[in-house]
Amino acid sequence: MSELLVIAEHDGRALAPAVLSTVTAASALAGHSGGRITLLVAGQGCRPAAEAAALVAGVGRVLLVEDQAYAQPLAEALAPLVARLAKDMSHVLAPATSFGKDLLPRAAALADAQPVADAVRVIDARTLVRPIYAGNLLQTVRVKAGCVFATIRPSAFAPAGVGAKAAPIEAVGAEPVALRTRTLGCEAGASSGVDLGRARVVLAGGRGMGSAEGFKRLEPLAKRLGAALAATRAAVDAGYAPNEWQVGQTGRIVAPELYIAFGISGAIQHLAGIKDSKTVVAINKDVSAPIFAAADYGLVMDLFQALPELEAALADDNSGA
């Protein structure tokens, strides 16, 4: 029977939504042979997160590790713990978020393992599919031997639901570490209040938004649709939008039901981040913008003219919101 460890990203109280998608991938890896999924919740004063973890469908056990060293989710502190636990595991998984991408490779190196990065599909217990070259190719890889380490692309797996009964929570000891890194804080930019990774609708702006004020004009429509706001690298570099809004090869990967691109030209690096969206709409006044080739619906129009028209059209329909 396989033993699968999923490293939980959490804030002490709740799990990050990406963890639920990672549990779904773990269930697929466990397959028919049956396997036990263990969620690792390491932190300090994080029992509420462990209790939330125990309720996730498919989770057989929660390991709770509390220590001052884990007060901040630093790879330097957590990697030795993960490498120790990996000795009893067939799989070690983490979401392919900035947390998981920072931690999992370090832990894998300590266990002398080569991880699979950013898996989007499970073939069998040791075989996964992952995008390379900004999603222009898919690579199917098999881990030849030993524990399978992988990060899981959250947008590629549906989130696990709530289980029938709570899994047991076991407290285990920390792995001693002389932590040298100090966290000085984290500054978030303006937020649309909707998690970009989970939003059903994403409104994204490119350089065509013209300014930070231009981006603000997306807000009424975002509010009406319950949409998250996103941006291209060009728009972030120009200072129109905060860094954490960036979608693309090196930013967030999103796969909403509806992605509307406003004033976005459509660089391949940006398209890499939206490829799996169900419906892509492009609104751009430049008829030759490459984004139109990647869109399900294209509208050649000045976005500042289209925005109020869209708001008006959707305001007519009470079921639209």
């Binding site: 699979v116 898919l138 690579q139 199917t140 881990v143 030849k144 990647a294 399900d296 294209g298």
Partner: peptide, 20 residues
């Protein structure tokens, strides 16, 4: 290498869109 590459493929093409 620890990983064996079994297959390389182009991702499925999106169905062609249309202009409105």
């Amino acid at each position: 290498p620890r990983l064996e590459v079994l297959k390389l493929e182009a991702p499925p093409a999106r169905r062609a869109g249309r202009m409105v």
